[in-house]
Every structure is written in structure tokens, then in C-alpha cells.
Amino acid sequence: MKHLRDFFSVLNTKTKRTQVAIAAVCMLIGVLIVTQLRVHQTASQALQAATESDLSQIVNNLDSEINALRAEAADLRLQLFKIERASNDSGAILKETSKNLDKLKVIAGLTKVDGPGIRVLITDEDRLLNSYDLIDIISELRNGRAEAISINGIRVVIKTGITQNGGNIFIDRKSVSPPYEVLAIGDPEALHKALVIAGGIRDMLYPLPGVSLYINKEADISINAMVSKNPE
């Protein structure tokens, strides 16, 4: 009750404005002090209580932690480098292997092949040619580095058998009859040369009546994959 009366008397005195002014300043001081205490409390609550040796211990710990992390970072960087190199290596190996695989597939006749080559038409009106003549032609084409060969649409590969039974010629047990259309993919010049070389297959077949070779160099020939009963 007395306080309340004091309060009102203060408000009514001439020094009222003075009091209000000081109160306002005190309010500002209060805000400042609380803010400052807050900052210090959050910033260094743990560190303030620590002694000097504790602080040096903390600093030491942090230093060793930094060193450990640096070492770990270096280790990881090294590991990353190794893995990157290994992946590069394995990538190169994979590329090389798939290239080889493609080559082997072509040789084994598992894939369709496109490219420049020659088209040879062999007529045989009197059916004088035998299986060995065809084998000779294929051998000559292989000498001319043919990548893929087919006779009458049948792909000829390493394991292809060319056989004869009486007057009939069989390629992989499929009967073929003249005229024979032989396709070969490779360097057209080399293939042409392999067939027309002096003393070669053309000269050998030339004397036979009714047999003639028509050789065409073509820019784009396509040979289908070997038809296999058990594709594997």
C-alpha cells in the first residue's frame, strides 16, 4: 500500500520526468544485459567453467582429432585414386574383350556382317564343279582376308562342311546347285586379286566348259548370320 502510494507520488512530483527518463534508460540496460548474458551463456557455457589445463586438454584433443581426420582423408583419397585407376583398367579390358568378342562372332558366323566386298557369280552349265572347287574358291577368298563368306545365302565359317554325294554338292548338309553366288566381305581389291591371281582359281576353272566367273566389287554387301539349329 505504501509502495503504491510512493509510486503515485513519484508520478505526481516535479521529478516525474526525470524518473521516467532514468527508468527508460534502465529498461535499455536491462535489455542489453540480458542479451549479453545470453550470448555468453550459449557461446562459452562449457568453456567458461573449464580450467586452463582443461582447455589445453580440449585443444590437444581437437588437434589430434584434426590430424586423425586429415590422415583419414588422405587414406580415402588414395583409395579413391586406386579404385578409379582399377575401374579405368577394367573398362579398357572390357572394351578390348568386347572388341575381340565381336571379331570372334564374325569369324564364327554368329552375327550379320555388312561392308564392302565382292560378289562372285559362278555358272556351271554342265555340273562339272565338285566340292573341292568350291573349297578352293573359299580358301582363295580366305587368303584374300575375307571376313565373312556365303554361298547361295549359306554362311560359310570354319566348321562349315562342304561335301559331295554323286553329282550333288552339300554345304552343311544343304543341297546347293549352280549357278553359285559367292559373297565375301573384306577389302574388295584384295579379294579380287586373290581370285584372279595368275595360276589361281580362275585360271584353274577357266578351261572347264560352261564354267565362268563373274566378279563384281561392291561397296555394301550384307551377309546373314549362320542359321543354327541350336543357337548357343
Binding site: 509502495h3 509510486f7 524518473q19 536491462g30
Partner: peptide, 20 residues
């Protein structure tokens, strides 16, 4: 008396605002 009230009000404002 009034300055004390002002101080307390200021502390209250400081606590309430939490100026970062």
C-alpha cells in the same frame, strides 16, 4: 522506484525477444 520497474521490464523484454 520507477527505474527499478524499468530495469525489470527491460530484462523481461530481453528475455522475451532473445535478440541473437
Amino acid at each position: 522506484m520507477l527505474p527499478l520497474v524499468g530495469l525489470l521490464v527491460g530484462i523481461g523484454i530481453g528475455l522475451a525477444l532473445d535478440i541473437p
